[in-house]
Design a protein around this nucleic acid. Sequence first.
DNA 1: TGAAATGTTGGGGCG
DNA 2: ACGCCCCAACATTTC
Length: 474
Amino acid sequence: MRTLLWFRGKDLRVHDHAALHAAARESRELVPVFVLSTKYFGPGARELAPHRVQFLLASLRELAAELAARGSQLQIVRGPAARAIPELAQRLKVDRVLVSAAYEPEARARDERIAGALKVPFVRYRGELLIDPHVVRTGAGGVFKVYTPFARAVREGLKDLQLYDAPSQLPPLPAGLKLRTAPLPELQNPNPKIILGGERAGRERLKRFLDGPVDVYPSERNRMDHEGTSRLGADLHFGTLSARSVWCALADKSDISAEARERFSAELLWREFAHYTLWNRPTVLDEPFRPEFKGFPWQRDAAGFEAWWRGTTGYPIIDASARQLLETGFVHNRARMISASFLAKHQLINYQHGEVHYFQYLTDGDLAQNNLGWQWSAGCGCDAQPYFRVFNPITQGQRFDPEGDYVRRYVPELAELPARYIHAPWTAPASVLERAGVRLGKSYPRPIVDHAEARKRFLLVASEHLKSGASVHP
DNA sequence: TGAAATGTTGGGGCG
DNA sequence: ACGCCCCAACATTTC
């Protein structure tokens, strides 16, 4: 049996890899392949999601080493995959092509084409999810649209998980294999602030989290000034950790509170819910999940949008999150929610602009999760927060960055302000501002919108739109 | 995985 | 001692 194992950028690991495990067990010869997509590595694509490209390349380099250590050799070829994989399969005379299943709409469509073009079986093994989305159904056989019952159903289906060991040895390449392989692209200037890619780093992050912050996760995870979150987003996206292995590691950890276990597993289930929703409703990529939000009167506000993404809105917590993203490729989850709410509700700017921006810069950027997060924040998503919940960027800052250290770190021009004023510098007495070296409107902007007014405006606009049934009778 | 407005309660100051 | 008012603290409702 000669097997082509196609790694696809969401399964860059050797542990708990169903397709790799099967390939190792059942093949005499094995050709592991990674296809450089034209989208990210073709001409002119250099600036697309640079942080994810960096993480991807680091992970690929390590995967290649792990495969080499097991007697195999990762082959890098140029895309597009829909052409490269059938060609390769034919030229190498493989008996089958194995992959980890894909769930995103484009990838599913591509896989259908490839499966049709191949003359040999195209076998899809378990992919990046905890559980196959098509088996998760309501009692009536429908699709879950609310998180809580969805989570309950998935938890029920995840008892007694079995993980796959990393193969200790892999079948060799076919003797005399001649492949025109591409070199793994080198990063010109790797950004040291981007989280380190690769399976080893991922496993270390998981261990560090489970040995430490997970126990106080229920409260600490909200603290923007602390390192209380798992930081596993990119690992779960690129598959340097399998979601199932994280689930099991958490379940096996006996010395933490039940509440902590429940709280963190709930985050894994939110991730699952996002992928499940996209799988069932691919149109969420183009339009709101809730049809009554179609035609929502978002405003064109180029200057406002630029202030939002550059971090010059005059609201320190918003600006800190914007700059954290540009600087580090990451934003604390609570800061994401506050900022998304601000863009959609305070600024009345279409959440899709924010969605695109986050997707460009987040190292953990994931199509399904990013979309769910933005629609949830804007109030138009699957089990979204109701439209009338509007975060107050000042009180959220005071509550979850009480000393202002998060703001100080990313908005250095406010670093000398006392905690009492750091989330609302315009309320500080002139003497305090002067002592802190802050000149409002010069060294740091005044708020571009007034919170109370913006909140009222959004509530008015949203309630008018929703009760008018604008989407039903356009 | 809100915030603000509105309502209720109860302790204490004071005439 | 008593009723009245104030208001902080908490609860409920509304957006």
